[in-house]
């Protein structure tokens, strides 16, 4: 029992340290990836493009709602080319 308990306490120490180290690495890896992509692959600012295409619609909230609805209905496959008032 005493020997067992000693072993389990060491497992607890090693286990918690390992979990903290891995999640610390998650933070480090995440930050590194974000910095590299921000620097070398900043991406296209899609929101601006959509706004110029839909200049007749003033409310960004409405656009966001339409984008979200299309995203959900098409499982992320659909893209909005143009939004016009009917």
């Amino acid at each position: 029992m005493g020997q067992n308990l000693g072993d389990v306490i060491s497992i607890m120490a090693v286990g918690m340290v390992t979990v903290f180290v891995i999640l610390w690495l998650v933070v480090i890896i995440g930050n590194v990836i974000i910095r590299i992509t921000n620097k070398y692959f900043p991406g296209v600012e899609t929101v601006k493009t959509q706004r110029t295409q839909t200049s007749e619609m003033s409310s960004s909230g409405k656009i966001a709602a339409i984008v979200a609805a299309v995203d959900i209905v098409t499982n992320g496959k659909g893209q909005i080319a143009k939004i016009t008032k009917v």
Binding site: L25, I33, N38, F41, G43
Partner: peptide
């Protein structure tokens, strides 16, 4: 840091994390 290209980050993240965790 604001994320400028979330899609790319999300694709690279599981590959990088998986590699590091697999080693440790």
């Amino acid at each position: 840091h604001q994320i400028k290209n979330l899609k790319t980050v999300k694709i690279v993240f599981p590959i990088a994390l998986g590699t590091v965790v697999a080693i440790l």
